[in-house]
């Protein structure tokens, strides 16, 4: 069986600064992988390459055997047509640190937009599905509220519903609790935990070490554009093999 996600020798540069220096990673269906590491280590960039929000200069990323973003034509690597890239982006769902809900649409409207425009559903179908997922994140009663009328935690839950309603094969979470007040973090983590329990494949960039420890089937520690260490969360957190990871864990709050 092919892996759900296959990253081979991923290289990414901003100008002359190389932020990803050859990352390899494979992930099976149903795995929950947390990516930890200090800021600037490349973890968010890696996530953003997977859905082509960032271009990358070397290596390949495949989801379900499909090569993402680039194709080789006559031995020359080139960007796939935008339509194809848009279609491939729908293979993954993403939740952002800043939620990025569409402020001029209600909670239900946010969830429905992709269903109507990308999945070409009727408004009735889309509305029913939006209600199902808003209910799932505990916000059905807020479906007609606008983002400005919701708390940060509620906005993030709507954003997760918006992504998950598109039925992605893989969910990407980019520091989804970093912009939240501490008392709102838990409601969002509970939603993600629920998805994990349902068997959703997820890549989670996070600073919540306790959460990473509890929810992940595997943890990846990014260090200076490379994978510094990876493995079972228990071993990683309790018996780090590398000096770097031990140092990182000492300076983070794992309580």
């Amino acid at each position: 069986m092919t892996n759900l996600l296959e990253i081979r020798d991923l290289h990414k540069r901003y100008g002359t600064v190389e932020v990803l220096k050859g990352v390899d990673c494979s992930m099976r269906q149903g795995e929950v992988i947390s990516i930890i590491g200090s800021s600037g280590s490349g973890k968010t960039t890696m996530l953003r390459c997977i859905n082509m929000l960032e271009e990358f200069q070397g290596g390949t990323i495949s989801i379900d055997g499909q090569e993402i973003g680039y194709e080789a034509v006559g031995g020359v690597r080139r960007r796939k047509p935008e339509r194809e890239i848009a279609r491939q982006r729908a293979l993954t769902g993403m939740a952002f640190q800043q939620f990025n809900l569409f402020p001029h649409m209600t909670a239900a409207g946010n969830v429905m937009l992709g269903l109507v425009k990308v999945k070409k559903m009727s408004r009735d179908e889309a509305s029913a599905l939006a209600e199902k997922w808003l209910n799932r994140v505990g916000l059905l009663s807020r479906k007609d509220h606008y983002p400005g009328q919701l708390s940060g935690g509620q906005q993030q839950r709507v954003a997760i519903a918006r992504a998950i309603a598109m039925n992605p094969k893989l969910m990407l979470f980019d520091e989804v609790t970093s912009a939240l007040d501490p008392e709102l973090v838990n409601e969002v983590l509970q939603v993600i935990k629920g998805l994990a329990d349902d068997g959703m494949s997820m890549l989670i960039v996070t600073h919540e070490m306790r959460f990473a420890y509890e929810v992940s089937s595997r943890v990846i520690f990014m260090n200076q554009g490379r994978i510094g260490e990876e493995g079972d969360p228990r071993e990683m957190f309790l018996k780090p093999k590398t000096e770097r990871l031990a140092e990182f864990l000492k300076n983070s709050t794992f309580n």
Binding site: M52, L53, E82, A86, R87, L113, A163
Partner: peptide, 9 residues
């Protein structure tokens, strides 16, 4: 980016 992420052109 949020639009791109749900597959909009």
């Amino acid at each position: 980016e949020a639009g791109l992420a749900i597959g909009l052109t």
